[in-house]
């Protein structure tokens, strides 16, 4: 125990000398001042972020076994769920917590609406939050196709028909999303790239903005 304390102190001293570590810990963790009116309703944003971290972690694990081709997609997902040790755990965690994250994000939004926390000076927190909601939903939609099951396939057809109803550019938009007139292997790899690279990166940028603004402006006052 003494040894651990000693090492702890030395590491902190080292960090302190260079980066004011102790001050940072005091200001952000041990002596952080929290409003009296904060209650459990304020936890949904943080929980959404926790869900996002779970999605990143389990998603990377799934990527290690998943094969994004029409021939192998379903088989590789079944392989993960049935043969890979604890594959069922990561696969279920990924798909269930995807649904949970959507719920949490919406609860978070409802809380902000209810408290009127979107008003001046937090307008752009709301705007970035709406983008985050849309990206979360796009994540769910693009991930839904990847197991290449009947549900995924028909879900993707219906989901892509909707932008197809846009006036004038609908048909072009539909074909752009599908990578052709039909849902094919091209759509699968397209959705895969969007799901694992494009959307996560965009999401991280908006999360950064969202968090930076919260830090700058502070959490909203009591009702």
């Amino acid at each position: 125990m003494e040894l651990i304390k000693d090492i702890n102190k030395k590491v902190l001293d080292w960090l302190d000398e260079r980066y004011d570590a102790r001050q940072w810990i005091r200001e952000n963790l041990t002596e952080k001042w929290v409003h009296k009116h904060i209650n459990w309703l304020y936890c949904f944003g943080g929980l959404s972020f926790l869900g996002f971290l779970i999605q990143i972690g389990t998603g990377i694990f799934l990527m290690m076994y998943y094969i994004p081709t029409p021939k192998d997609a379903l088989a590789s997902v079944q392989h993960i769920a049935n043969n890979v040790p604890f594959g069922w755990l990561f696969q279920r965690l990924h798909s269930i917590s995807a649904n949970v994250v959507n719920l949490l994000v919406m609860f978070h939004m409802l809380r902000v609406l209810y408290h009127g926390a979107y008003k001046k000076p937090r307008e752009f927190q709301w705007v970035s939050g709406v983008f985050l909601l849309l990206i979360t939903m796009a994540m769910s939609f693009s991930g839904y196709l990847l197991p290449w099951t009947q549900l995924s396939y028909w879900g993707a057809i219906i989901g892509t028909e909707m932008p197809g109803a846009t006036p004038f550019i609908g048909e072009w938009l539909l074909q752009l999303i599908r990578g052709g007139a039909q849902i094919t292997g091209i759509t699968l790899t397209r959705f895969y790239a969007i799901h694992v690279v494009v959307l996560p990166l965009t999401l991280i940028v908006f999360l950064g903005l969202h968090f930076w603004m919260i830090k700058k402006v502070g959490i909203s006052g009591p009702m």
């Binding site: 694990f61 043969n83 890979v84 040790p85 604890f86 990561f90």
Partner: peptide
């Protein structure tokens, strides 16, 4: 433990 098992080759 699950993570190590998951990543270990079959």
């Amino acid at each position: 433990y699950p993570i190590i098992r998951y990543l270990s080759p079959l």
